[in-house]
Structures are given as C-alpha cells and as structure tokens.
Write a protein that binds this DNA or RNA. Sequence first.
DNA 1: ACTAACTTGTGAATGAATTCACAAAGCTTC
DNA 2: GAAGCTTTGTGAATTCATTCACAAGTTAGT
Lengths: 207, 207
Amino acid sequence: MKRIADSTVRRLSAYLRFLEDFEARGLSTISSDELARRCGTTSAQVRKDLSFFGSFGKRGLGYSVPELAGRLREILGLGRQWKVVIIGAGKIGAALAQYRGFKQRGFKILAAYDSSADKVGKTLEGIAVRDINHLEKDAHKEPPDIAVLAVPSENAQAVVDRLVRAGIKAILNFAPTQLQVPSDVTVKTVNMAMELESLSFALTNRD
Amino acid sequence: MKRIADSTVRRLSAYLRFLEDFEARGLSTISSDELARRCGTTSAQVRKDLSFFGSFGKRGLGYSVPELAGRLREILGLGRQWKVVIIGAGKIGAALAQYRGFKQRGFKILAAYDSSADKVGKTLEGIAVRDINHLEKDAHKEPPDIAVLAVPSENAQAVVDRLVRAGIKAILNFAPTQLQVPSDVTVKTVNMAMELESLSFALTNRD
DNA sequence: ACTAACTTGTGAATGAATTCACAAAGCTTC
DNA sequence: GAAGCTTTGTGAATTCATTCACAAGTTAGT
C-alpha cells in the first residue's frame, strides 16, 4: 500500500470523531462538503483522503454515516483493544491515568510504572503503580502495544531504550526531547512548550 | 515577510530547546550538522529554516550558541512576557496550572476560570479560580494574550466566541473539537485521541 | 602565502500534499 | 425516461516543503 501521510491520518481521526457525534444525533448520511466544513478542511481533501482506502460514498448522495464511521475505525485499527502502559507516575502521568479517552476508544491501561519508592505500590484511578524494574518481566507476560512516556527529559532516552528492548513498537512521548528509536518503532511527541512557542511566534509575526 | 510554515516554527522551537541545554554545558559553537542530528532533521533543513530570518552563522565554523539562541528567542517572540488565562478548572485545567513550562518560558498565568460553584474561589497552585462571568471585565482591565482552553467539547465553541469577543488572538485548545475563529485568531489544538489513533494506525498498517 | 579541511547560505531540483476540474453516477420531478 | 440537480472519485495542475549541490567564506597547518 502507498505510504499515507501523517496529516491524512490525523484528518481521518477528526472525521471519525465528527461522524460519531453526527451518528448519535441519528443522522444517516453526510456529504464530503459538510464533513469538510465541520472538520475545517475542503470537500476535495475529504474525498482524496478516503480514496486512498477505497470508495465508500454514493455519487449524488454522499456517505452513509454508520458505514463510513465503521470503515474509518477499521482503517485506524480501532477494531481491537490496544494495551497501554504509562511510564512515570508524576503529575503528567497521573493526569493521563485519569483521562477518559483511553477507555472510550478501546485503549486498556495495564499499569503505570515509576522508579520512586513513594509512588510504587499506590494506585492512580484504579491503575496500579509498579516498580519500573518490573517492566521487562511484566511485558513478557502481557506485552503492551503502546507506551505513554511521562518521565523527565533526562531519563527519557534511557527508558525508551528499555521499552524498545522489551518489544514495544509505539510510544506517545510527553517529554520535550527528541528520541532515538529504530525505524520499526513509531513515536508521537506531544510538546506543550512547542505549541506555546508557535502561538508566541504567531502573535509576534502577524501583519 | 514570506509566510513561514508551521513545521518550520516547530523545528525552531526544537533547536532553541537543544541550544539551551548545549549552552548550559558551556559549549560555544555548533554546526548545522550537529544541531540537525540532535533534533532529528538534516543540516540543509536547519540552514534553510534559519535562512528565512537572516544569516547567523560563520562559514567554516558554525553558529555561536548564545547568539543563535538569542536570535531564536527573538524570532519566536520569547523576549517579552505573554499573559495567559486558563479556561476550565477541571482535571486538565488543574494539570496545566501546575505545568512548570509556562513560567520557565516567560508565560504568566493571570487566572483560571470556571463556571461551577465548587471550583470558583479556590486556588490551583497559587492561581485564583474565578467565575467565568468575570472573564470580560478582567480581560478589559488586564488583557490576556493567550487562552488555554480546557473545557468539555460541548462548551468549547461558545467559550471561544466569548474569548474572541474579548479580544484574544491566540488559543491553545485541549478540547477534541474543531473551533471556528476569525482569521486573525490563531488556534493550536492538542488532541490526545488523535495521537493515540495515529499510533493505532501505525501499528495496524506497518509492513 | 598557499593548501587542505570545514561549514554556511542559497538557487535549482526534487518530492509531497493540496486543490482544481470534470466525467460518471445517483436521486427527484415531471 | 428525460431533464435538472447533486455529489463522488480521480487524474492533472498547482502549491508548498525538503533535499541537493556547490560557490564563497573561515580556520589551521606548514
């Protein structure tokens, strides 16, 4: 299959979110034009994005909302349950542990890990905080698919090396640092500082 | 000035973060090649990114670390203090209030706002939680530059409309929804669900 | 002062993503 | 079943971003 751009995947995700709202309101079809308006893009873009995966619409009519939502879930790999571990039970880790979106979208949090003695053994929103040294053994018993990395920048690369050795192929990184991983491991970085600086740039350089 | 791509701005932000580390270690010059390696890009990309704003390096030698860091701060608009308000004192709002990066980068949090009676009047990490109905009056006295939006999706657009009317030109949005704003207002959206779904897609569609 | 080794800055070339534009196909009305 | 209105799917054209490649400037060694 042709390589799909990251920007395309992000839009598919936006389309799905909107379709789920739309479906809940009982509406059964939608045109690329309306979907585009609601998701901040253009109808041509919507159709091009979908065309990479097949043709799901009816000319003259539009798309069946439940069918398109189902196709998008399938494309995005949301048909199955993904197993997630959270690394780092500090402030960000704790905030993530209570984030509802994981369960809603079929992401199951297996455990959180930390190295500090005053966190290990506690629970965060029903999630056990385990000693980071149990990571490899636990991962061997029940391999996680995704690791959410919420540790200080200084430790991030060392933890990533362990995660990679433990066989993890997908990392959501909250540490504001560039991570080195082999090419079969996918990393997405969420970086508040970067977003704030983009806004600062935009405010500074507007006409 | 020529329009600068968002991807460029995000890289500048990454370069700056790295230069600050590098400077703290007492190193005084760096080549585009090393900067690129540390930030996950190429030397040509580094030089092209910088060339939009001037020429800061010395041929044969590289860049002065403190000078380049200074230029980047200037370009990114970090020379001044930006005033920030947080809208929504729920879990995400509370997590953001304690985020150190704001102060570190010169972003001053003026206040948090919420509509629920059991939050208003409390403080979050030394930040007053005020009634959302005071927003307009407060903004008139001391106009915020940036609003961080941490309210439920359902309310997000209504709040944004108020923010826009109050004169705010930059919004960092944590609600997983597409916001409508006039073209002179910049929005950056941080969307966990989208990142997770990108990872799910990558795991599902790898060769 | 000359040579060798580096490294920048930048047009030109390439590659990637978005937009255009229109034929093909579906519905509705008469 | 024909005319009129709608909307998809997709090559072609365009716009945007990255990479190439090299002249020009700098340092160091002899």
